[in-house]
Design a protein around this nucleic acid. Structure first.
Lengths: 223, 223
DNA sequence: GGCAACCAGATTGTTAACAATCCCGTTGCC
DNA sequence: GGCAACGGGATTGTTAACAATCTGGTTGCC
């Protein structure tokens, strides 16, 4: 559940990093909210040194910003940045899809199609939470199939930065069914073994997420 | 000169980070070499805490690896990893080229073409060092023109990981003239304002670097 | 001679106290 | 009343000492 990027520092800091990151993802820490070291020490029963190291790492991951002598706060992500992140995902996951199309075995194809069926079920049941989860599983599966570790690390990093937005995109009316269609196409082209088409489809899918983000923005300004 | 990624931590650690990073890039610290904290303290006259924070950041950047209670060492980069990094660069810089093709002004076109002329001169003079520098300037210019900050951060990170290899690629016989040709094509298509073709050309260029890397590997095994 | 337990030096991990900086309410003056 | 200097409290930055762990060589036994 907890993005497992990077090598281990020490145990204590890893615990704090995970806790704060999850807290941000789940919205328990709001964008812009301050994160005083003393509070984190009390919350997670860690030493100040550990908290300090954890904040440094989170800053490096881009989800926390620090100002000298003024502490850390949750970094707010603008819509423009969410768009950029999704555009970057589009090209990197496109690369993964292309590699996956070449490398995947018949057994992998079966598992991918299974995930496709699962995703269809979540749309049928209008289960937005499950939709998001299976959605992630599909992207993760293709990223794993590609065997491209560098791309994997980049995607880990991008994901942690933008997860807050993913939930909201799935809430757009009609979005899940569009997303389902696109995912099924991606899965089929990966199974077909054509790297170029697989890449193109994956990119098209994520660029449609970019459109959805803009639509989300329009809705927000309307209110 | 010094890759300027990331926000500022404190001054002292930033100094150590830059120093060690440059040391690795220039080959003063060899891959696999140990980096004892005490040595860095003595070398850069910094406190141990600062050195420690710096090592944590360098680990996060992927150019140093640490094992608990066993210290830090320069992370060796395999050829496979260099290939992966270049493949990732291909798609991300492709994105930048596409954006740049749309955004660039007539003045930008002029400056780009100037860089192309400079690059041609370095090939004419067989000046490999200057070739590498102008090469970087061209890629940097396109990345800046794109205005895509997320892609920019990703490229910064990729670059610091693989700089050791860049020098060597330019040393392959005939490589500079091939690279020159490709760069000129990229520049012209960006100036033409067609995002799709610009992206395609940039990707083709970097995938040809991937080929060069493989060739480098073959040469190495021959010796 | 070979091998396992052991010990000293070196190296890293952790903690706690000290110093510097900033924020914000207060005071005194014009 | 408005404004600038001041000061206490809170928060972060830095340093130094202490504890834990690893490495490599040595000793003693079989």
């Amino acid at each position: 559940m907890t993005a497992g990027g990077g090598t281990a520092t020490t145990d204590a800091v890893a615990v704090v990093v995970s806790a704060v990151r999850d807290g941000i993802m789940q919205g328990r820490f709001a964008p812009g909210q301050r994160l005083p070291e003393a509070d984190l020490v009390a919350l997670y029963d860690a030493s100040r040194g550990a908290v300090r190291a954890a904040l440094a790492q989170l800053e490096n991951e881009g989800i926390v910003e620090r100002e000298r002598n003024r502490g850390a706060r949750v970094r707010p992500i603008s819509l423009q940045e969410a768009v950029e992140i999704t555009e970057a995902r589009a090209v990197v996951e496109g690369l993964c899809a292309a590699k996956a199309a070449v490398k995947a075995t018949a057994d992998d194809h079966r598992k991918l199609r299974e995930l496709g069926v699962e995703l269809a079920a979540t749309v049928e049941n209008s289960d937005v939470v499950a939709y998001s989860q299976v959605n992630q599983q599909i992207h993760r599966a293709i990223r794993d199939l590609s065997g491209h570790e560098t791309a994997g690390r980049m995607l880990d990093r991008l994901r942690t930065q933008s997860v807050r937005y993913h939930y909201t995109v799935a809430l757009l009316p009609g979005r899940p069914s569009v997303g389902l269609q696109e995912h099924l196409e991606v899965i089929e082209t990966v199974c077909a073994g054509d790297p170029d088409v697989a890449e193109q489809r994956m990119r098209a899918h994520l660029l449609s997420v970019v459109d959805a983000l803009h639509q989300l923005d329009a809705n927000l300004h309307q209110w």
